[in-house]
């Protein structure tokens, strides 16, 4: 009997970790979607994605601290701040630089990252600031399992957003153009689609997604530091690469896998191994299966292109 009870308790721990992982992973998935959309339309990497969200969140926190803004105002300001920063990054690092200069764009987005960090520090010179909690708090019990209310909100918002993004991509003219540019920006141009306009709009879309994801993550943690930018960029990148680039379901699955790996290793091996495990899994995934877990990756697309010619 005792052994059985012990086994049951272990099972409960494991499942509880999976639940927590999925909740956090949902937000990672949103970040990965942001990366995958931008990488799709531009074939360039925007390292400043995370820092833009960080700066947006700093605007939100600033409003919270100085103007005592309500949670929904903080959400709105975080999103607006992210969008404005996103536009700044797009104009300076991508629109202004030749389309084929991929490394230059990436390095430029890194240089702007340094700028955004410093702007955040000038705005709020302390390192760590409280971030207002969500409208809801507490949690729900499902049998032996416990789910934090913030996590539940994160999951629900993520599901809604993924459905919305899917509809936008597959049911609207903008989505058609965005996908066409992702597949071949040259061919899209011949169809009368303007790739730089689509890129610009994609940046706004992605900043919206990122702003929401950033808010969800920070309102769960209830604090923000300038390191949040770095954290977001790398969580998003890892989740995108795990799932395989260029696919929305891949991004979500990558996010969930990353979330589960992190919570499980944190539980069983301790905090020190939490980040380590993500990198080990990513490295192995890249070396063993470069196309990502869900394989509509670039590698496969290139294969397709070779077979075609």
């Amino acid at each position: 009997m005792a052994i059985e009870r012990e086994l049951f308790a272990k099972m409960v721990d494991f499942v509880q970790n999976c639940i927590d992982g999925i909740m956090i992973g949902a937000a990672y998935g949103l970040l990965a979607i942001g990366f995958t959309i931008i990488f799709g339309v531009m074939r360039r990497l925007n390292l400043s994605f995370g820092p833009s969200i960080m700066l947006g969140a700093f605007f939100g926190t600033w409003a919270f601290l100085t103007l005592n803004a309500a949670p929904w105002m903080v959400l709105a300001i975080t999103i607006a701040g992210t969008v404005i920063t996103g536009i700044y990054v797009e104009r300076l690092c991508f629109w202004a630089i030749r389309r084929d200069a991929t490394i230059a764009s990436m390095v430029s987005s890194f240089a702007i990252w340094m700028q955004l960090d410093e702007v955040a520090i000038l705005m709020l010179p302390g390192r760590t600031y409280p971030f207002p909690e969500m409208f809801v708090s507490g949690g729900l019990n499902f049998g032996p399992f416990f789910v934090r209310a913030e996590h539940l909100v994160t999951l629900l918002v993520t599901i809604l957003m993924v459905v919305g993004i899917r509809l936008l991509l597959y049911r609207t003219t903008f989505g058609l153009a965005l996908r066409a540019v992702s597949e071949s920006s040259d061919a899209a141009k011949y169809m009368g689609i303007n790739p730089s306009r689509i890129t610009f709009l994609a940046f706004i879309l992605v900043s919206l997604i990122g702003g929401v994801a950033g808010y969800l993550l920070l309102a769960t943690d209830q604090q923000v530091t300038p390191y949040f930018g770095l954290w977001v960029t790398f969580k998003g990148l890892i989740a995108m690469m795990l799932g395989g680039m260029g696919s929305i379901p891949g991004a979500i699955i990558g996010g969930l896998v990353l979330g589960i790996i992190e919570t499980q290793t944190q539980w069983y091996l301790g905090n020190a191994f939490k980040d380590m495990s993500a990198y080990v899994v990513l490295f192995l995934a890249l070396v063993l299966r470069p196309g990502g877990l869900l394989g509509q990756g670039i590698a496969e697309r290139q294969d397709l292109a070779f077979r075609r010619v």
Binding site: A177, A180, E183, D186, G192, R301
Partner: peptide
């Protein structure tokens, strides 16, 4: 230069983008 991972029908739709 077809859009390789879009379906045939989506390619046609993209052609009528304007």
């Amino acid at each position: 230069l077809v859009f390789p991972t879009m379906s045939v029908e989506e390619n046609l739709e993209a052609g009528a983008f304007i």
